[in-house]
Design a binder for these strands. Sequence first.
DNA 1: CTGAAAGCGCTTACAG
DNA 2: CTGAAAGCGCTTACAG
Lengths: 360, 360
Amino acid sequence: MSAEEESASLAPQIQNSPNTATSKVTIYDIAHAAGVNASTVSRALGKKGRTAPRTQKLIEDIATELGYRVNPFARALPTGRTYLLGLIVGNVVDPSFLDVIRCAESTATAHGYNLILVGTPEAPEKEIATIQRIKGGVDGLILADPLMCDDQLREMSRDTPLVVIDRQTEGIPCVVPDVKKGVREAIRGLRENGHRKVAFVSGARDSWMSTRIGAEVQDACEWSGMEAIGIPSREPTVEGGRLTARNVVASGATAVLTCNDLLAIGLMQELQAASITVPDRMSIVGFGDAVGSVYTTPQLTTVRWNRGQTGTNAINLLVEILDASGTPARAVHLDTEVVIRGSIGRQNNAPSWLEVEAHD
Amino acid sequence: MSAEEESASLAPQIQNSPNTATSKVTIYDIAHAAGVNASTVSRALGKKGRTAPRTQKLIEDIATELGYRVNPFARALPTGRTYLLGLIVGNVVDPSFLDVIRCAESTATAHGYNLILVGTPEAPEKEIATIQRIKGGVDGLILADPLMCDDQLREMSRDTPLVVIDRQTEGIPCVVPDVKKGVREAIRGLRENGHRKVAFVSGARDSWMSTRIGAEVQDACEWSGMEAIGIPSREPTVEGGRLTARNVVASGATAVLTCNDLLAIGLMQELQAASITVPDRMSIVGFGDAVGSVYTTPQLTTVRWNRGQTGTNAINLLVEILDASGTPARAVHLDTEVVIRGSIGRQNNAPSWLEVEAHD
DNA sequence: CTGAAAGCGCTTACAG
DNA sequence: CTGAAAGCGCTTACAG
């Protein structure tokens, strides 16, 4: 007896919650209960103000009482709007991408959309196939660092509302970090610390980000009369970073900037394993402020921007396009800043050949 | 002229790709082209074998030629199956959750489902509200570490096919790590290293995982004649870990196990900042093998299990339930193992009071 | 094996 | 302001 009472009082919000039953409540049920036509219910629940205030309220009350939820698919059929947004990503290695996803999701929800997450193999054709597969079921897409070429991308965007992140292509709305600013600041910092020769570790494939960062490193170095040396990596991971260590050392550079933090972390590990002290003998600057860049010893100096903002802005841009179709493609640039941590230092021990050259 | 040729050859797969046009191809278009009824098209494309081999092939050919894609919403309406699965997560701080998401997505795709990701505020009612909002649009749900009570969970699962991860509740299908095994191994390892007093840093709220780990630490310590001391944290993050350092030291324990790796990392940082050497003066064992646990110095010893398997198994379980409704609730236990890294060591410098006690 | 028909739950001109 | 009707694209008994 008392047990029954207890179980009854344990979950009152469930017992009382409207329509616990599995049966689906439709607008016809509401129409019936309210004594109006289903179309009136549709109007009352949808475009407000097209219905008499009294009926409006009556219908709304009945709807909540019955626990009515619009069937999104039934709605999608006549309207063509699914209120689903797709986020398509390749092989994301960087864990800070979780921020992008999380913020994209919450922003989508705030706009009344749901986010469907789709992974795609890292190959242009697969990417296109994935998009084809998915696009019929969503109102718009966000493409993270897509591999397809510019023309394919533009072709796609004629077909489907779409926003690209971490890549800028003429004619396509996108969200990218302000690479130039970040790199310039980083290079300036290195110069002030006496560095004159900087290595740049690029990503395996020529992603927009890697290419962009490399170009800006080149540019910034030229501007400040420094030498820049490009060093490719095999993969944009910690392991890939380790593998570049030899080449980085062999390059004769005293500082190195990598196109992402994982590379920087791997590089640091490998250098330390070879007793090459960081930053005394090699300064390291990462890019992206990945989770984990503060766990290293020394902590990693890196070019940071708000990854969450990437997700938020991408969704906002997409929703904007969806709402007012015909919006011109817009590029959102996210501010970057250099976070100075322990991995960079003064270049004191100029190698002798440098002085020799100076005498030439 | 040559430029035109070039642009034409640049993206042949696009030019040739079937139905580049935006217009939607329906089964009626195919039916018209094939000279059959739409219902026949539906059968040919859907349940195979219910149509003459010749018509079958004819229809399939026309379908691919026209670039037909089934409209998932039109299908969902009569069948009630959306081929959408929801993954509902609270405030996920651990970046290794990206593995869960990624594997869940790819497994869902392999089964012909798409994954919709939904974040929810960390409060039982909000959680339930989120589920209510979402459940009409998906075939089933995966709940990551939900906050609602057991009864609410069971109530929900009557309503909607659902699988829970990182929590075990009687009557609910779930995927959890084998906590007992991992903790036992860890404690045994500590004992063999001479430790006799172990602190356990729990999560802020009593998540199933934290509670479970704590209980097993207690149990394992009793079994091996060791002392276990529980220390709550304010939040299950790096910062939260830092804040527990004082209490951990004050506890007199020589080793500490935390309910996740972030706590362990923060704790290590704070101890080191106070010149308390790890592992010489304090051994640390994490839980979860989070990204970043290998970036610390020393690297973190932790209880690991395959996070990706969590996502994979959860989806498999859910799809299994969806396919054969009426399957009994099943709990999948993922194997765990202790990964020994530098953060644990021998307890050599037994404090004097220990010896004093021994003489008592 | 195939066609004609009804229906899934909603929206939206079109009348009134 | 409201109702009756048609239609979104598909599926599935039901006949034949």
